[in-house]
């Protein structure tokens, strides 16, 4: 599976039947109630804005913020697209909860051995050549699974074919550096609870601007401080020598430090 996988969510096709959530809960063995917001028991949730339904789940970013902040590499971006989580590595610092721009990871607060929970992009199904449970269950084709590049072409085709029906934007194409979940919508995304202030630069770049200076601080700082010590130390010794010269001018000059 060399091609990166993705999903296209066409909000104009969604009828709010919640089949995606039911299939997800069945696949992940979660209690089968319908939820509006992401939680420990809802890896995908269906929220309603006027007459539009919006699915939420992990966006499986191309340059994931959570993967970059995790100190132990418990989160990783797999080649096929899913952002995977390894609870055995996780130390529970919760930086991913703090940093995820989509507020996706949820924490098992009540456990004494807590992990995070989130959409897995059905990585195990993908590995078997199946599509994610939610895409398979969607009766209207509102959630479409496929190769990332092909889905982008398809999204553009739909928007161009009916420009009156869609706002001219594929959300997720390059937001925070691109995600694996694309949304096309009849109304501006800001009205649907999408954060519009995030820009196209991957979030981890913000951190890298500081982290990339670490080697410089070590090398330049090390030389600088060493130099400062050498100079101040030398000055002190010269002073001491001059003082001793004054006291005892007969002292041989080769003692000079």
């Amino acid at each position: 599976m060399s091609q990166k996988k993705a999903m296209l969510i066409d909000l104009t096709l969604c009828v709010g039947c919640n089949a995606c959530q039911s299939a997800c809960k069945e696949e992940n063995q979660l209690p089968p109630n319908e939820e509006k917001y992401l939680s420990l028991t809802a890896y995908t949730a269906l929220d309603k804005y006027n007459d539009l339904y919006v699915r939420r789940m992990c966006q499986h970013c191309d340059v994931p913020t959570c993967v970059s902040v995790c100190p132990v590499g418990a989160l990783s971006k797999t080649e096929a697209g899913p952002v995977a989580y390894d609870g055995e590595k996780c130390i529970g610092c919760r930086y991913c909860l703090q940093a995820c721009p989509f507020h996706v990871p949820k924490y098992e607060w009540s456990s004494t051995k807590p992990r995070i929970q989130k959409c897995k992009f059905c990585a195990s199904r993908l590995a078997r050549g199946l599509q994610p449970a939610c895409a398979e269950a969607c009766p209207t084709g509102a959630t479409l699974f496929g190769d990332r590049e092909e889905l982008l072409v398809e999204a553009a085709r739909r928007i161009n074919a009916e420009p009156a029906r869609f706002v001219p934007r594929v959300y997720g194409k390059d937001d925070v550096g691109g995600t694996s979940m694309f949304y096309i919508s009849p109304v501006p995304f800001e009205q649907l609870g999408f954060d519009s202030r995030m820009g196209k630069t991957p979030m981890p770049m913000l951190t890298m601007s500081a982290l990339s200076k670490v080697p410089n601080v070590l090398s330049v700082g090390g030389v600088l401080l060493g130099g400062v010590w050498w100079i101040t130390n030398r000055r002190a010794k010269v002073q001491a020598f001059e003082a001793s010269q004054k006291k005892d001018p007969t002292r041989p000059p080769e003692d000079k430090p």
């Binding site: 590499g73 930086y95 890298m208 500081a210």
Partner: peptide, 14 residues
């Protein structure tokens, strides 16, 4: 774990 599992992109790791 941070002793043996590194992620140089993480401020928390640093």
């Amino acid at each position: 774990h941070p002793l043996v599992m590194w992620n140089p992109h993480s401020v928390m790791c640093e």
